[in-house]
């Protein structure tokens, strides 16, 4: 029988004691994984897992990872939206775990959007 070991939770609690809980405070980046039926069927859960693994490895506490529903662009799923404070949100489309890892390293950690995976960047030009 699987049991949640209270001692394990206590260990986590103790390791956090004395540190400031930034996770509940100010966020620098918000990552939203689109998890409508379309996103889930296209592999959004794998994207969520990849991001969670990267987040854990990075140790960053100013990044919030969350989910939302269908954005109406079902043929572009799996999608994420990356919002870095004080810059325009970027929607990334047709993702897989490898692309997602690159976005985490380049955009989320270094602040350089990965234009090749983005839905669109900037506005239309005529040249």
């Amino acid at each position: 029988m699987a049991k949640l070991r209270i001692e394990d939770l206590k260990k986590i609690k103790e390791s956090m004691a004395g540190t400031v809980n930034l996770r509940a405070g100010d966020q620098r980046v918000k990552i939203t994984v689109h998890m409508g039926t379309c996103g889930i069927a296209a592999g959004a859960r794998k994207i969520m897992n990849a991001l969670l693994q990267k987040l854990e490895k990075s140790g960053a506490s100013d990044i919030i990872l969350t989910s939302s529903g269908c954005a109406g662009l079902c043929n572009h799923e799996p999608m994420i939206t990356v919002e870095v404070r004080e810059s325009a949100p970027v929607k990334y489309v047709k993702l897989d775990p490898e692309k997602t890892e690159k976005i985490f390293d380049e955009h989320i950690m270094k602040g350089n959007p990965v234009s090749e995976y983005a839905l669109s960047m900037g506005s239309e030009t005529t040249y």
Partner: peptide, 11 residues
């Protein structure tokens, strides 16, 4: 149980 020391979304 976590009692505010961290959140459930802690990796």
């Amino acid at each position: 149980e976590l009692d505010g020391t961290t959140t459930i979304s802690d990796p």
